[in-house]
Amino acid sequence: MNAVLSRRAFGSTLLAGIALATLPAPARALDLASARALIDRAIAEVNIVINAGKPEAAMFKDFEGIFVKYADVDAIARSALGPAARQASPGQMKAFTAAYQGYIGRKYGRRFREFIGGRIEVVDAKPLKSYFEVISVAHLKGEAPFDLRWHVSNKSGRDLFFNIIIEGVNMLASEREEIGAMLKKRNGDLEALIADLKTA
């Protein structure tokens, strides 16, 4: 695992280096560094929460706060809702996004809860398509370290992450599938979905 990781890290560092050398340097370099800095700050806050030992409900609220602060919640919610987002009214989108953000705090809060006693650290960052990929490694007690990636974009006007990829499993794809299935179960009734998300 270590050998694989370091080889991959080496390769991507090299790639990032080449990309930096061939692109108009200042803007790109700044973006790569700021993307990395964003995730460094987000992870520092996650690490504090997973080691603070607060009760579950308080912990989920903390995660929701981190999510709102560092993630492009509007873009993630829109993407999760998929084609239905196009038919939704602005008011519905607002209500959906608000309900969805609490749901994410609880759902991913439960996952991060398993990281208690562990730590996450950023190891690399590189440009990818029109955004940046920040690569981090999660070290959990008694387990081989695993790969956690963050996709960061500034298309919203600020640097924010819009996707998390855990060992290849990406949050946006999984959320789109899940929210799509929830909507289908409710015969496409967005209002019912919003109401249920508040307690899910």
């Binding site: 790969d147 060992e167 290849g168 499993v169 794809a173 999984s174 599938e177 899940e178 299935a181 929830m182």
Partner: peptide, 17 residues
């Protein structure tokens, strides 16, 4: 909501990774 679809997605993405 659809555990089959979630399992399929998780398996394929993780395997490709």
């Amino acid at each position: 909501a659809d555990s089959y679809a979630q399992t399929r997605l998780l398996y394929l993405q993780n395997r490709r990774f």
